[in-house]
Amino acid sequence: MPLQRFTRVYGIQDAKISALTADPASGTPTYGTAIDVPGIKTFEVSGDVEVKTLRGDNKKLATNSALSNVQVAVSHAKVSLDVLVAILGGEVTDSGTTPAQKSRWDLKGSTATFPAFKLEGVTPANGTDLIGGDFHVVLHKLTLSAFPDLGFAEEDYRIASFTADADPLTSTDDWISIVLNETAAAIV
């Protein structure tokens, strides 16, 4: 019997970003090592539809709709310097020895590259109708669409967030994938 194709979706347990390192016109895309998005809180996918209406003879004759954009909005509880490199560019430099170690992310005009990346999020096991199953959302090729929200908040935690626009892969035309697993599977 095939797996049911509908489910409730509860919670988000993990999200990872992987740099898109190659997307050849004929071939297979390649990605860098997956980077954890620490303290993932939300992973919201939305899209824009462009609608064209044809009118004539003083009435509506036809309507055509086309998907014009897919966007993701992510919020996470902890700031990761490695995630900043993956979505904005720049570089991280580690220096010093205990007790004076330092990790420093620097973004310069020459390193603000806004690289392409893949983003995958997953529910916890049992976050679906399937006992022991999970639900994955994969956006195969993203580019940051606004500078990420960073900074501080008085007497409160500051939640980091970013938004990115999706494009179909050149190599496979994959844009977004949703996977419902009977048995929970980790993001690879």
Score class of each variant (00 low, 15 high):
residue 25 A to T: 11
residue 79 V to K: 09
residue 25 A to P: 11
residue 106 D to I: 12
residue 53 T to C: 01
residue 30 T to H: 04
residue 66 A to M: 13
residue 120 E to F: 00
residue 106 D to M: 08
residue 117 F to D: 03
residue 58 N to K: 14
residue 109 G to Q: 08
residue 94 D to I: 05
residue 36 D to P: 02
residue 45 V to Q: 09
residue 84 L to E: 02
residue 72 V to N: 08
residue 91 E to R: 10
residue 120 E to L: 00
residue 52 K to R: 14
residue 115 P to G: 10
residue 36 D to Y: 01
residue 102 K to F: 00
residue 44 E to D: 14
residue 89 G to A: 05
residue 76 H to L: 04
residue 60 K to A: 07
residue 54 L to S: 12
residue 76 H to V: 04
residue 132 G to H: 02
residue 39 G to W: 03
residue 64 N to T: 15
residue 76 H to E: 09
residue 128 T to M: 05
residue 29 P to M: 10
residue 39 G to Y: 03
residue 65 S to V: 09
residue 106 D to S: 13
residue 106 D to F: 00
residue 121 G to K: 04
residue 129 D to Q: 13
residue 20 L to S: 08
residue 92 V to S: 05
residue 34 A to L: 11
residue 100 A to G: 08
residue 71 Q to Y: 00
residue 43 F to W: 11
residue 71 Q to N: 08
residue 125 A to E: 13
residue 135 F to P: 01
residue 63 T to D: 11
residue 66 A to H: 05
residue 131 I to C: 03
residue 102 K to M: 07
residue 113 T to V: 08
residue 77 A to I: 02
residue 126 N to H: 13
residue 84 L to S: 03
residue 126 N to P: 02
residue 96 G to Y: 01
residue 30 T to Y: 03
residue 99 P to M: 07
residue 72 V to I: 15
residue 92 V to L: 06
residue 119 L to V: 04
residue 99 P to R: 07
residue 41 K to A: 06
residue 65 S to N: 14
residue 109 G to F: 11
residue 39 G to A: 04
residue 94 D to A: 15
residue 78 K to P: 00
residue 94 D to L: 12
residue 46 S to P: 07
residue 135 F to N: 00
residue 47 G to E: 13
residue 45 V to A: 02
residue 128 T to S: 08
residue 78 K to L: 14
residue 135 F to T: 01
residue 64 N to P: 00
residue 56 G to F: 08
residue 37 V to W: 07
residue 73 A to P: 00
residue 92 V to Y: 02
residue 32 G to V: 07
residue 86 A to C: 07
residue 85 V to H: 03
residue 58 N to D: 14
residue 55 R to K: 14
residue 113 T to W: 02
residue 78 K to R: 10
residue 126 N to C: 06
residue 40 I to W: 01
residue 28 T to K: 12
residue 102 K to S: 12
residue 118 K to S: 11
